[in-house]
Nucleic acid binder design. Sequence first.
DNA 1: AAATTCTCCTGAAGGC
DNA 2: TGCCTTCAGGAGAATT
Length: 269
Amino acid sequence: MPELPEVETSRRGIEPHLVNRVVTDFIVRQPKLRWRVPDVKQLLCGQKINAVERRAKYLLIRFDNGTLIIHLGMSGSLRILPADTPAGFHDHVDLVCGDSCLRLRDPRRFGSVLWTDQDPQQHIRIIDLGPEPLSDSYNAEYFHAICKQRKAPIKSVLMDGKVVVGIGNIYATESLFRAGIHPARKACNVSLKRIETLVAHSKTILAAAIEQGGTTLRDFQQQDGKPGYFVQKLAVYGKSGEKCPNCDAILRNLKIGQRASCYCPQCQR
DNA sequence: AAATTCTCCTGAAGGC
DNA sequence: TGCCTTCAGGAGAATT
């Protein structure tokens, strides 16, 4: 699934192919994504792409007359292809610029394509989002202040996009393991000291994953061949039943907020 | 306000 | 072999 590192890598990959190009077509084969894809072909044709930005896991393709907002959901992927490449079954949207196009494929259709002619930072999906995880705004003091007033599991707070964006199930699971914090522990019961460790680890692991994504997704525009570039580095995610890499305990699985949470009962308290 | 549950959808995995 | 069931999962919406 596209985590923040993968979205950022996609952004870096498509940006040079799109900026300063002029849109010649906008093809929607399947409008039923997370929300109905708007019919903006007339608005887009003839428009020049000014920039490709990212906010949280949203990609922002900016034009003079508005912004296309793309979210990859959990199975979405973007590729730059020759415009005449035949579309596959799950290839739902093309943004065509002359002889090449940006193609969105999304088998599970949890992704979305939105349009706004206002400042995208003020968009309903974006305005209430928390700080970027790699920014200074996401720090121990900030996160601790929020945790103090939350009785929910620390993992749920870490994954709350209104608190901090881009930390999905995988990175929350890994960060908590590295920080030695039990994922179900009430957020208000985690000391500032331990929050410091957690915040530091979450930043480190995200930064490292972006590096990895940069390496393995470099040729993403050719094919989809990207078999989980970060998988080798994961210590516990998806490994319940296996041995903890730090001690000899067996990793356990727990459901927290509808999501699988693997943890070490020995190392994480 | 915060917490919990439900929802969208398909592919993969497991059972028989 | 193949059909059927179950379930993961980002994140907004609905509900308590």
